[in-house]
Write a protein that binds this DNA or RNA. Structure first.
Lengths: 354, 354
DNA sequence: TTTTTTTATGGGAACGGTCCCAATTCTTTG
DNA sequence: CAAAGAATTGGGACCGTTCCCATAAAAAAA
């Protein structure tokens, strides 16, 4: 049952030298005779020596490993961010371990403790929908483990983060709906716990205001969990006396679920109701009609978060964000117009975005 | 820069007892006076003691952690398997770390070494398209670290694995095309390195044979990398003197890319050409028309692989698969018929699968 | 050749836990 | 009340590495 590994002591014994010398040879320390180094390297290779990172991290007090915690990864958003993180971290000689919370606060806390117990050197985080208590994050900070957030950033914490301008992006999306002549624009918002939800909603409200459209509370609903709820809400909208002629959805899955309800009712998209989503999931380009949505530079977000974390980890003097303002980077979004807002022939005339 | 953590010695010192006692209290050893245990627990909590898993794994020679290695995770297949694995492993008290290879053999080798260097207790693997050399896997076995494969299983290795019957599933899919009257059925196969490719191709060939349709080599192409290639191949098929009236694609992304080419040509699906994919990605239900495809029980695959790994890890005497036949579990697939093979009204009459 | 400097190696503490064995304290029993 | 047994605690080895300090060997300088 128990695995057996070769240790540097085994190598030392065979070559009749000390383990210190073996260690030096293996880590490329300059003070080792070429002859000795070669002998060590060869024996190590032939015995398939595999360094023990536990012992190493334990003895050196850093593990050269970072963690990334994401709330879910069934959409393409998070996987794609992770790939960006891995790129940068691999190049910098770090290992990346991925934790996935299934949108569960409890998992988040336990995964955080797991990563800390493995003494990772830093953590990149996007928190779950359920997270309202941030003690597990401040714990990491108190332990001196740098944190960088992206996408979902705890509002009251002063931490380095990478975000997009949710407000502005939502504003543009809604303005686009207004400019194509829509007046009764509904909004399916996200869970109240996320800043993103509030920012996007504000963008929605302000776009309406700018164009002199009165906000109608009947046309806004908050959506917390399942696809089922979206469908119920959407059905409700469509059965209003004066139903909406457009929908701005908090994200693409919501928009797509709403589209199904609309199509099932026999209504036309975009003629009867135009729809906009958020994030440009892979599926946004696949549905029929194609979904107009806000593209986020996912891989870039990951790369940037990784760069920021490297900065934090490399700082000789740890940044104290109880005093100093934490850096924040805002990356640009891009509104991708597809057939769910502008009917086919019109789109073809415009620059076609795929 | 360096993080500082509380150790059991700090606790021992404060309470003026030995670290052995603290250790016992913390791990729930029976021989500790209730009074002492309480004092330790309280102090540990108030000091936010965080056990050092490195030291622990290092000293105990097992880490209570398993690794899972997947070739990519931009499709829904692998994430969904991972969720299944996590479910079972969490319940069994194990931690799961995820490694993603971006379909790169090199990453696979280095991630394998990473996991071994962290002395994980077991590993669940699906290898990359590029993998033709399996030394890094046998290395793990020689070290006594149990491996369980799923989906992509190295052909010449005798290892526990969880698969679906690719042959049978492909056979059924192609037979379905034949039964709806198609005669010229094209096949876009996968990379030669995967067993799955070969099995699905054999299913394709045998279904044709069973129904007396001669195999036409012009209608089969192997597809190795990009979406671009699929499009080129598909265009080529459509420009043949007698183009195919159906396509069996190795997976859903391939099928979907092919659909775009067909639609761009102004041909109708399924009237002019019927299309079947494989795996039932999330997007298969979203495209227009809906893609007929073979559903795999992804989360079940993950759960089963996890169960098998637990078995292996718990075996008092390590199973030696150089002697004994490794267990294999085959889970059932299900052909999901959508509008890409059977036009809308007909589908509605049949049991509608969503 | 002898001394000094440089280079290469060995020895052993340290890292934070677990766990075995010995020592101590408390109970119980004859 | 002494002796035996059980419960609790302390002491210290051990796990695999790094790294500092000391020592030995080789090279350079005197």
């Amino acid at each position: 049952m128990k695995a057996k590994y070769i240790t540097i002591i085994d190598i030392a014994r065979q070559l009749n030298i000390s383990k210190s010398t073996v260690s030096r040879a293996l880590t490329g320390h300059p003070n080792v005779k070429e002859h000795t180094r070669k002998a060590v390297m060869e024996l190590a290779a032939s015995m398939e020596y595999q360094r023990n990172s536990l012992a190493l991290g334990f003895s050196k007090h850093n593990t050269n490993t970072i963690g990334i915690m994401v709330p879910e990864f069934m959409s393409t958003y998070f996987p794609s961010v992770i790939v960006g993180v891995q790129d940068v971290m691999q190049a910098a000689g770090y290992n990346v371990v991925i934790c996935q919370q299934n949108e569960s606060y409890e998992s988040e806390v336990s995964n955080m403790k797991l990563l800390l117990s493995y003494r990772v050197d830093g953590i990149i985080v996007s928190h779950t929908k359920e997270t309202r208590n941030f003690d597990h994050f401040t714990l990491a900070q108190r332990r001196g483990v740098p944190l960088v957030f992206f996408n979902r950033v705890p509002e009251d914490m002063n931490v380095p983060n990478v975000i997009v301008n949710d407000y502005e992006a939502a504003f543009q999306a809604v303005e686009h709906l207004i400019l194509i002549g829509r007046k009764r624009i509904a909004h399916l918002a996200g869970p109240e716990s996320l800043v993103n939800t509030r920012l996007r909603r504000q963008g929605y409200l302000d776009a309406l205001k700018k164009h002199g459209i009165a906000y109608n509370p009947d046309l806004m609903l908050s959506y917390d969990l399942t696809t089922e709820k979206v469908k119920i809400y959407m059905k409700h909208f469509l059965e209003l006396d004066t139903p909406p002629d457009a929908l701005f959805a908090i994200n693409d899955p919501t928009a797509i679920a709403a589209m199904e309800v609309v199509k099932a009712k026999g209504l036309r998209i975009p003629e009867d109701i135009a729809i906009v989503g958020f994030s440009n999931d892979f599926s946004a380009g696949l549905v029929h009609p194609g979904l107009t949505t806000v593209a986020q530079p996912t891989s870039e977000i990951g790369r940037m978060a990784a760069e920021m974390l490297l900065q934090e980890m490399r700082a000789k003097v740890k940044n104290d964000y109880t005093i100093k303002k934490a850096p924040t980077v805002q990356l640009p979004t891009r509104l991708i117009i597809r057939e769910s807002t502008v009917s086919e022939e019109k789109t073809k005339k415009a620059v076609k975005s795929k």
